[in-house]
Design a protein around this nucleic acid. Structure first.
Lengths: 205, 205
DNA sequence: CCGTTAACATACCGACCAGTATGTATGTTC
DNA sequence: GAACATACATACTGGTCGGTATGTTAACGG
């Protein structure tokens, strides 16, 4: 039989992308390897040459696709030249993922976290680590803002950070269930108002 | 063979409860009918006597167990003798479900909503209807609070309601992924602070 | 040119799963 | 007490799934 083009990196990459799609639409446990193979034209032998099992493929999707892309969103929070509240609001207004074309699919990270937490420790640890780093990034940015006089001093940065991440993921979750861009807009507007309420009062000179 | 006790109502009820447990732990699609039958001692013939298929069993769990119990939480928001912000804070401090003994299992409604939205219209419609009613209950309570001078007039009740429901479910989602009561506490404290910030300023006489 | 290995391809397996076919015991009605 | 419906029980089916066993082909080092 005609062998396909032999390019291991490319094969691996297309498997990761197809697996991401399948997992994003179906969840990890409902994701079918046969579907992924059908999507790519890769055969089962090739798949199991690159990954020892389904779990490892799932972990690779998280480690190499979902998490790196998610992190680019809040990386900017570390920029000390910016007002952290402005940055938070900008982040909220951006398109979340290039993946997430459709609000009906929700947030890939939240989807997986809700599905796999309590089921598989490997997934849970990866996703929780991501969410924890996200919370920390916000927390540190708010602390910096407090020192710079941009953020109110009567708020607890750790508490606000956890609340904001929760509210953000919750907004995408609600919108997914509602299947509605409008619900997402409404929730995110609420989040934006909240973020603005964290600003330190301008000292009117 | 020795027939079991013939009590159709009881059989149906125990199926619903076992199905709820299985779905709560595994999600609907991963829930195994054989597991449910094993949990109850009910046989497959009995199950399919009471429900035409797995989907109908799942819908019944939502309609007869999950939604009714969820609604008891915010039913109180309609009480006009109470300050709606006090009520919201109290609701946030209550134990969420008698089901939800364990923060690691998350919120049954959110779990199902995230799993089944976009997969099955019957589930999605039921869960979205619930969440929509919840948002409306908060919205109306806030409007009433505004008229009564208990809630600030510079907020949009609809926006705040969506934001709060999202933040609430998001808090349970984060805590589930973190597997941590502490994360839940932190998020809910943030939500509580937010709720307090909605109070109308006391007119100092 | 030969041996070895990486990179696949094909065929198959046992487990599980939703659903069904068929049988049977029990209570109710006339 | 016969007819009938309800409330089950048992055994089985077709399909899907993750995973494996066993090839085969191409590239490459010596």
């Amino acid at each position: 039989m005609a062998q396909h083009a032999r390019n291991p990196d490319q094969t691996r990459e297309s498997l990761l992308l197809a697996a991401f799609e399948e997992i994003y639409h179906q969840g990890f446990r409902q994701a079918s390897l046969d579907n992924i193979l059908r999507r790519t034209g890769v055969t089962k032998g090739a798949l199991y040459h690159h990954f020892p099992n389904k779990m490892a493929l799932g972990y690779a999707v998280v480690d190499e696709i979902i998490v790196p892309h998610g992190e680019t969103r809040w990386r900017r929070l570390g920029d000390e030249s910016l007002n952290p509240i402005d940055t938070l609001i900008e982040i909220g207004e951006e398109e979340p993922f290039p993946f997430a074309r459709d609000v009906k699919l929700g947030c890939p990270i939240n989807n997986l976290a809700q599905e796999m937490a309590g089921i598989d420790a490997g997934f849970q640890e990866r996703l929780n680590r991501f969410l924890d780093r996200w919370r920390n990034a916000i927390e540190f940015a708010l602390q910096r803002g407090q020192r710079a006089g941009q953020v109110r001093h009567d708020i607890d940065p750790r508490e606000v950070a956890a609340f904001m991440v929760g509210a953000f993921e919750g907004a995408y979750g609600l919108a997914k269930c509602a299947g509605s861009e409008e619900v997402l807009e409404t929730c995110l507007n609420g989040l934006k108002s909240y973020a603005n309420s964290l600003r330190a009062m301008e000292a009117t000179p």
